[in-house]
Design a protein around this nucleic acid. Structure first.
Lengths: 343, 343
DNA sequence: CTGAAAGCGCTTACAG
DNA sequence: CTGAAAGCGCTTACAG
């Protein structure tokens, strides 16, 4: 009665039916009589039997597995994204489990050789790509994936003509919400710190939202209040220093990331300016740190929960041969202390 | 020349050899003549051919996959662990990739039905278990896994008679280092905030290290300076308040986690005590937040990098039929500002 | 060094 | 409702 590595044939012998019937019963085929089915399930449970996925996969050409490829920034210091990805991972595995998929995780450098092989080797039925990187390089790889008929969805900005299907944060909307919040608080001269280049579409979109909010309020963006900065605390710090040295007058800062915002606050405070009394600061990302800095940072939060679910839904639909529309998810403004809305 | 879903047979036809030779060549068997091997590799590359893992796995009874099971605390609020796990995940996937294994990730509730099936279904060759939870429940599940002949390694405390093989932080040593650091700075009355119950072996071990350091310095632990607290900021805060209300005199706090330490610092500062001038504080975990609080927290850091590598090494050895010894990894004291060692 | 052949454990048309 | 049979794409003893 005890079999070491039971197969469907062992179950069949024990149940006195054919192996085919066992296979049908375990997949809950309506073709099998209920009594028979129950008997087979019972025996399988007793023997700790589980369908051999390799055999099933070989037969059906499916793996019921999604490959999640996480691309890391080359410098490796950007923990912000990692933290966001973690909650994504959490939500992706949950959503995938609900739909009967396992998740294979691989951390990659953008420069790595690419992973057409996940699908070609039947290890995964489709790919989910997460991670920001150099856009130009990224794009070329996506084209290669598409050319190889690989099914994939991307988390990231929606870009024209980009191969494949993507979901991402509506950065323009987020930039708008952040700026609008400052305007509603009566701020008049709002500095922008961050990149604007086409190579970083998410920053560009946030900037576009900033401009839209200003325009809507009848104002124009002020060039002198725009300081380019990559995503780091020290660059945010330096950017504000530059603004102060130049003697620009401003009563608010929209920092394109939380890290930049935190550096900006440090520079302001060192210069004797009070946040938010003298200058309001908004960030973007809602990294865990944001709630703990002083004053607690008001910022824009991407919705990892819905994002993860959408990605899984998207790739599973692609796997099932359905058409999938790219889409954007509206972020949420998290109001804390750094703007003076609460006091 | 273009084949849609090429198999080894397609390669064989193109190369004018048998399918068996293709299989051998692709696995770099020395049996195949070099010239033949190269020719086959070239054709495979041109066709974007990758070995069907299901077929190979079915034949060899291997999946070359590790299942990483992350157990979450039931309350779901404990981001500390999640952050640590993320860096573990990173290191685990890297180490696994080096040894030719993929990593399947699944987030689980301790209460979930357990996953003997990962191995039984040939989806994974072995399991890596990460996550703290109710110890008694945990243990029962481990016994079930062991009974089903599942290969697994655990990240966690080393416990007597625990089924399976485990690697973990040497918490006793960490508690010792933290306390020793305080003693070396001249602190005399060192409070301990954290649990001590047998149900949380890691806290108990940290406490044991605390006691050892005191004893070594010729002191005895003072019962009145010991306040039980679970892992949260507010409980750390309350613990110190209680200490202060009771009028205990103390010049240092060893908090069994960073979150507790941060709450403790808040309570001290609100009471008008200066950290580290009046009271030194050490934490444990080195969560990302630790570097950013004021004063920056001195704490004990687990080595996720080595930890991840050891787990992978361990499970792969088990898979290969080798014997594996459980082991502990010494943590590292990260000296920042909260103890006064730097000033 | 290479080939013919068996077989891993399933799923699913086909036949009854 | 059930069974006999084919076949998914590999790996590997066996034979030469």
């Amino acid at each position: 009665m005890k079999v070491d590595n039971p197969t469907s044939r062992d179950i069949a012998d024990l149940a006195g039916v054919s192996q085919a019937t066992v296979s049908r019963a375990l997949r809950n085929s309506p073709l099998v009589r209920e009594e028979t089915r129950n008997r087979i399930h019972k025996i399988a449970r007793e023997l700790n039997y589980f369908v051999n996925r390799n055999a099933a996969g070989l037969r059906t050409h499916q793996s019921n597995t999604l490959a999640l490829l996480l691309f890391e920034d080359t410098d490796g210091t950007d923990t912000t994204m990692n933290l966001f990805f973690l909650s994504m991972l959490d939500n992706i595995t949950r959503s995938a489990a609900k739909l009967g998929y396992d998740v294979l995780v691989s951390l990659q450098q953008i420069s790595d050789d690419w992973h057409i092989q996940y699908q070609a080797s039947h290890r995964a039925d489709g790919l989910i790509l997460l991670g920001y990187g150099d856009y130009a390089e990224y794009r070329e790889k996506l084209a290669a994936l598409a050319a190889a008929n690989t099914r994939f969805v991307i988390w990231g900005p929606l870009v024209m003509d980009q191969p494949g299907c993507s979901f991402g944060c509506d950065n323009e909307n987020g930039g708008y919400q952040a700026t609008r919040h400052l305007i509603d608080l009566g701020r008049k001269r709002i500095a922008y710190i961050g990149r604007m280049a086409r190579r970083s579409p998410e920053h560009a979109a946030r900037y576009a939202g900033y401009v839209r909010a200003l325009r809507e309020a009848g104002e124009a963006p002020i060039d002198k209040l725009r300081v380019p900065a990559d995503n780091s605390e020290s660059l945010g710090y330096e950017a504000v220093q530059r603004l102060l040295e130049r003697g620009e007058s401003f009563d608010a800062v929209f920092a394109v990331t939380d890290l930049i915002a935190i550096g900006a606050m440090r520079a302001l405070q060192e210069a004797g300016l009070r946040v938010p009394h003298d200058v309001s600061v908004v960030g973007f990302d809602d990294m865990p740190l944001a709630a703990y800095v002083t004053p607690a940072l008001t910022t824009v939060q991407q919705n990892a929960q819905i994002g993860g679910a959408r990605l899984v839904e998207g790739i599973v639909n692609l796997i099932e041969g359905k058409t999938v529309q790219s889409g954007l998810l509206a972020p949420r403004l998290v109001v804390r202390e750094s703007c003076g809305a609460k006091s």
